[in-house]
Amino acid sequence: MIKTLKKFAIIIILSLVFIAMAIWLPDIAKRSSIVAWDYFKEMIIIMPPVFILMGLMEAWVPKDKIQKWLGNRSGIKGMAISFALGTLPTGPLYVAFPMASSLLKSGARVSNMIIFLGSWAALKIPQLIVEIKFLGIEFTSLRFILTIIALVLVGKLMEFLLRRKPDKEYVLPGEGN
């Protein structure tokens, strides 16, 4: 009972905030609910196929293949694959979390997943076109290059930190290979 309550705590708090706003700040409440409803529709459409694709991947792609492509000894090639996976035009970042999660479970290395998540969020090709249009080619290309460098550094650093003190609940595979 308490566990269930805890699971839904954020949702309960959010509903209370929404109710309070509907009473005292009806304008903001209205705007918020329109945005929330749009997001809800988007998620309902996008999430089920994403999760089924992840399930299919876990059922069909052998773990040693993922370890070979994205694992500890994948080197530059692994980075390139992670980067390429991330730039594909496939939706918002929360779609990528379950993907990264199952890739990690199958033996992908942490630094590659940081590159994957980062390029997914920051370096999408359709997004870059919009950015060039509004902020210019100089701004966009400089940000692009610096972001790639930052992602590689953050990935390496995280790998180092997580290897020294791994998350107890999420002990990652491939440690010490």
Binding site: I10, I11, L14, S15, V17, F18, I28, A29, K30, R31, S32, S33, I34, V35, A36, W37, Y39, F40, M43, Y94
Partner: peptide, 10 residues
């Protein structure tokens, strides 16, 4: 997430 996104953008 849906709720929080709605609130912040509102």
């Amino acid at each position: 997430i849906i709720g929080i996104v709605g609130l912040t953008l509102g």
